[in-house]
Design a protein around this nucleic acid. Structure first.
Lengths: 310, 310
DNA sequence: TCGATCATGCACCCATCCTGCACCATTCCC
DNA sequence: GGGAATGGTGCAGGATGGGTGCATGATCGA
């Protein structure tokens, strides 16, 4: 309903280059370039200027992008209300999500939606949080499941999105099955202060969560190894190289010799899993359905995993 | 920026038939029909139903039309603000107006705009008030100058338009130059209670104004003749058939034997001339310029006409 | 029953717009 | 400083969307 060239401009405003905009929107770079030129022509405004080998938004361009937020939200609201009023569903529904969230929450959601609403074409894209927001703006996806991060805190005030917390995913300790504490019911971080820890490289979202957990209890962990994927980290632990933290939502899989223990005591760390949608679209029947399914699913996984693996 | 098919639907909502929508938007009837069908397809909603040989909006359709008002207004606001911020003007500017208003106010406005902003293509359409609103919705015109009427009072609350009063156009009395009161400076309606009056057919906007003026002073005029155009009415008066009321904005032209006198005493009648624009567009530079020019022009005409003709 | 009014399907056609490629500018890196 | 990588844009070509004009079917009024 809204001119696609405006959407293209908005995507450009997020990623900053024509090439990236093309990749996100699914157009060719030439098409993006032409669309932006055309948009400036019909509005009679200069929205972009050359900046080195790239392009940069002018003040007018930035104004147009942020100023269009209310209109986009208004349209989403209207569409959602019309869908609700007419008892209809949109024909296409895109989901985006990040690693464990995607695997554990989005796959079942997509399956459920497929069976409940067979006429809706559901598509799932695995993508990191930043890209998820890009995809939301580009209208490639309609709902994203991501891990809330401190750096995204300002995203709550973003006029483009609306977020709802799905669950607080607690971090558990994973340790080798022959570890001295492996037979305990629960464990505190203080008790593991001297153990070698396995974590992700500094700068990652998980690493920030990791250090926050320890500073909360006043302990400085000894970091022995770094891993990028949960799989790798679990294998390191299984091999006896150290101990680590694992979100309860992440599955241990078929890992041998690894025990999962919930953390007790002060400062139980957790990561917040949130669902993000374009502002205004929260009232859409499909999205309301999806949020309900996701929350139900999240709750069930959390309790089941405790019973199964601990 | 907004999908033209939505605009088409909104015009249809005002006029009720595909043919009239086609005429207003400038499309062919086939095109309108196809657009409405396509709009329903992409939204997956039934917006229209057959009703006899015509079409009728469904509840969903009405919902979509009225619900889209805020979005349209938001877009107009954004466009106006972007124009202002970028110091630009839109390339096309449409004006609409009614009879004497068009002749006396819009023609000079168009001329002024043409000289001040030579790059803007100005177009004037003479149309009655109802059609002016249709043309505003259809985006054929951007500003309409109309006579406010009691039946349009609810138009103030219409979510689609914004109106600003340009001037109160007082009604003068016109009488034959050999009339017993023709040498007076001013006249009251009571003094003319027994004279034969010339007015427009009952049901017209002017007639309503006419009767309101007399009921205000408690006099029942004797209506002798009916005329549709000012020209005709003035000719009747010049021929000595009776007396009449004429808005000060309307010119006497080259009429012979006709004298114009302002009305004094209680209940000086006047008609309100208002400018109407699409909601949100009031901040546009061109519109702000136009309103200023119109008000200036209106004021000058009012005072000049008094000196010239009285 | 005839004409007028409306909506719509169909054939045709034109404008829009996207792709793929080539080309130019800038920056990075060796 | 030169070559490669990155980023943007122009152009030819082609598909598609969408508009026009006409014919047709349906309904209403006289």
């Amino acid at each position: 309903m809204i001119d696609s060239r405006l959407t293209t401009l908005r995507v450009f405003a997020r990623c900053g280059t024509v090439a990236a905009t093309a990749e996100l929107t699914g157009y060719s770079p030439s098409a993006v370039s032409a669309q932006l030129r055309e948009l400036q022509r019909v509005l009679g405004l200069q929205l972009l200027t050359k900046d080195g080998r790239g392009l940069r938004l002018t003040a007018t361009g930035r104004f147009l992008v942020t100023g269009s937020d209310p209109m986009i939200a208004e349209w989403e609201r209207l569409r959602a209300a019309a869908m609700e009023a007419g008892g209809q569903m949109q024909a296409h529904f895109g989901l985006g999500g990040f690693s464990s969230a995607a695997a554990q929450l989005l796959a079942p959601l997509a399956a459920t939606l497929r069976s409940v609403h067979p006429l809706v074409e559901v598509q799932v894209l695995e993508a990191n949080p930043a890209r998820c927001f890009d995809l939301l703006v580009a209208e490639r996806i309609d709902l994203a499941v991501i891990v809330a991060m401190q750096s995204d805190m300002h995203a709550d005030e973003d006029q483009r999105f609306e977020q709802t917390t799905l669950l607080n995913d607690p971090l558990d300790v994973i340790l080798p099955s022959d570890h001295r504490l492996a037979t305990r019911e629960t464990v505190t971080l203080e008790e593991l202060a001297t153990d070698p820890w396995i974590t992700e490289a500094p700068g990652s979202a998980y690493h920030a969560l990791f250090t926050a957990a320890f500073t909360a209890v006043g302990v400085t962990p000894r970091i022995a190894h770094e891993a990028v994927e949960w799989e790798t980290q679990i294998a390191f632990v299984g091999a006896g190289l150290g101990v680590g933290l694992l979100p309860r939502l992440a599955t241990l899989g078929s890992a041998e010799n690894v025990t999962r223990l919930p953390i007790s005591g002060r400062g139980k760390p957790s990561r917040r899993i949130v669902a993000a949608v374009r502002k205004g679209s929260i009232g859409s029947p499909l999205i309301k359905d999806s949020l309900a399914i996701l929350q139900d699913r999240a709750k069930r996984i959390l309790t089941e995993r405790l019973e199964d693996e601990l």
